[in-house]
């Protein structure tokens, strides 16, 4: 979340609630709705690290609000984040552990495990599909995010198939 907030602040100074709204608009329902408290906690940490500064702005009839803006150090940190390559997904799948280890314990047979997992994946896929259907078609970012998730899920299913073929 740190980098997302920094990126938003690099665009323009904003207060915490504005940041929460911006995140929701951009990523849509595909992204877990950020908790406002969490945002303030993160902003506090960023300020402590010297990446952002805040100024109090007075408001009529309401308490002062804190507007955050990015510092030179913050901009530098953001640049580093953007420039460094992002790690690919790590295959240290929990299910795979189950699949390999469970039969040894005699707790479950592999076939049942795999079948159950497949159905679960399909259920997840159905959720994603329904989610995609409910998403505003104009929201490309959100839809792409959902599609990414679907492709990962497809890959998991294909992998499952491979496991089923090759694990005795």
């Amino acid at each position: 979340m740190r980098q997302s907030l920094l990126a938003l602040l690099a665009k323009e100074p904003a207060h915490g609630y504005e940041l929460k709204q911006a995140l929701e608009t951009i990523f849509g329902s595909a992204y877990p709705s950020p908790n406002i408290g969490q945002i303030y906690v993160t902003l506090g940490r960023l300020e402590k690290d010297g990446f952002v500064r805040s100024v109090d702005v007075e408001q009529a009839n309401r308490p002062n609000k804190k507007v955050y803006y990015i510092t030179a150090t913050g901009r530098e940190a953001l640049e580093t984040w953007v420039e460094e390559p992002t790690e690919g997904p790590r295959v240290r799948d929990e299910f795979f552990m189950k699949l390999v280890l469970a039969p040894m314990t005699g707790l479950s047979d592999r076939m049942a495990l795999m079948n159950r997992q497949r159905r679960h994946y399909l259920a997840l896929m159905r959720d994603l599909r329904e989610l995609a259907d409910q998403t505003d078609p104009a929201n490309r970012v959100a839809l792409l995010l959902i599609e990414g998730a679907m492709l990962h899920l497809q890959a998991d299913l294909d992998w499952l198939e491979r496991c089923q073929e090759d694990l005795p």
């Binding site: 329902s29 595909a30 992204y31 877990p32 709705s33 076939m111 079948n115 497949r118 159905r119 679960h120 399909l122 259920a123 997840l124 159905r126 959720d127 994603l128 329904e130 989610l131 409910q134 998403t135 995010l145 959902i146 998730a149 089923q164 073929e165």
Partner: peptide
Amino acid sequence: LDGQIVDDGAIPKSRRRPAGGVGDVVEL
């Protein structure tokens, strides 16, 4: 698998029904 039916069953309802359209793909 290999010409035999190894599984035949309904796709379960997701335990994590996304409520009100607010999804959590990233969490998935």
